[in-house]
Design a protein around this nucleic acid. Structure first.
Length: 367
DNA sequence: AAATACCTCAACCGCCGGGAA
DNA sequence: ATTCCCGGCGGTTGAGGTATT
């Protein structure tokens, strides 16, 4: 634990370190009865020898009743990876899209689990990466084109804050988006340090998925003009199609729906329930895109009348990759879902919009 | 069985931005 | 305009647990 002092703790002697059950009880009772209000006043009102920040952190990360404890599911891992590709280490932003998960939890999960696994996964790709990059560097305008086609953005600093919440799920779709939208999801193995999704694992045919979207002739010509042929062939195979119109996700809404096998996830809202009918561009499959909000009516290429009820088709291949990743490197994991070789997802411990916190005292549940 | 290495994650630190005084 | 307070966030630490030797 740290040894310094919060500025808010200088005025009084405060306890540090792990919280005792008695302290938890006090904090829970106080917030349940009165809400937290001003956090700096909570310790005094609750009778705790803690600073306000510590109380806030304890509540948010551990005592909140809507927290989902336990291992991350492969769907959650997949979503975290995708969101991290876009947002970087914006853990709070990422956590907003994972119901019941905290930024601290996501951050810990990333640092202790995903990052190492992805790095190990990428090690084997590095030799190929160097040669591929050399080939790309010889292309005319290769750099700008590369960036234009790359739907992932590992550098969160490049994303305006105002766009941080404008996240769009990897929507399955029948119709290609209009020209001008980044459609090709570049092979992330070409980007050192970024997760690589093996093309072989993205073959949807093995899982009875609808046929993958293929670019229009126009788009193909654009691709040929600007990209190496090998890039086009690989990336067009990465589209996973579920037959739905693109769907906008509004700010703060959880994205898990697109990653869940909804036959086992009843507590999470369906995508169609989370949208208001404004649907517009979403393109890539393995990475979410950050797009400027645009009026739905401004896109003639989209069918605004379609809703996302059929968007429940998960990115199966994507999740399968995550599962294989987790099972391959996570033999010590206690997560039953991550070790499942099949695509049937283990049900999350979720029976409603909020999950009981197994750590909360029974007295809190029945005060 | 004991020692060591490794891993997880709760909690803290320090910084930042927003708002009030 | 400046200062102060507060909430929020990302980075980091280290205690405790687990796996390995």
């Amino acid at each position: 634990m740290g040894h310094g002092h919060h500025t808010c703790c200088n005025k009084q002697k405060v306890k540090r370190g792990l919280w005792s059950p008695e302290e938890d009880e006090k904090l829970i009772r106080h917030i349940t009865a009165y809400g937290h209000g001003c956090w700096s006043a909570v310790p005094r009102l609750a009778g705790l020898q803690r600073c306000g920040k510590s109380c806030r952190l304890r509540w948010i990360n551990y005592l909140r009743p809507d927290l989902k404890r336990g291992s991350f599911s492969p769907q959650e891992a997949a979503l975290i990876i995708d969101l991290h590709n876009i947002l970087g280490n914006k853990w709070a932003q990422i956590a907003k899209h994972l119901p019941g998960r905290t930024d601290n939890e996501v951050k810990n999960f990333w640092n202790s689990s995903i990052k190492k696994k992805l790095m190990a996964q990428n090690l084997s790709d590095m030799a190929a990466v160097s040669s591929d990059l050399a080939a790309i560097s010889n292309l005319t305008n290769s750099r700008s084109t590369f960036q234009g086609f790359c739907s992932i953005n590992p550098n969160s600093n490049l994303i305006p804050t105002a766009q941080m919440d404008q996240i769009y799920i990897p929507a399955a779709q029948n119709n290609p988006p209009p020209p001008g939208f980044d459609q090709v999801n570049f092979n992330t193995s070409l980007l050192p340090g970024l997760p690589s999704f093996p093309i072989s694992s993205l073959d949807s045919s093995a899982y009875d998925l609808p046929p993958a979207w293929t670019p229009s002739e126009y788009q193909q010509s654009q691709l040929i003009d600007h990209q190496q042929q090998f890039i086009k062939q690989e990336e067009t195979s990465m589209f996973i199609t579920g037959g739905a119109a693109p769907t906008q996700f509004s700010n703060q809404l959880p994205l898990m729906g697109a990653y869940e096998d909804t036959s086992v996830i009843n507590g999470l809202p369906k995508l169609s329930e989370m949208t208001n009918g404004n649907h517009y561009g979403m393109c890539s499959s393995s990475a979410l895109q950050v797009l400027e909000p645009v009026s739905a009516s401004g896109f003639s290429g989209f069918h605004s009348g379609l809703y996302a009820s059929d968007m429940q088709v998960p990115a199966v291949s994507h999740i399968q990759f995550i599962q294989s990743l987790m099972s391959a490197f996570n033999s010590s994991s206690s997560s039953s879902s991550s070790s499942s070789p099949s695509l049937s997802m283990s049900p999350l411990p979720c029976s409603g919009p909020f999950l009981l916190n197994p750590n909360q005292p029974s007295s809190w549940i029945n005060p």
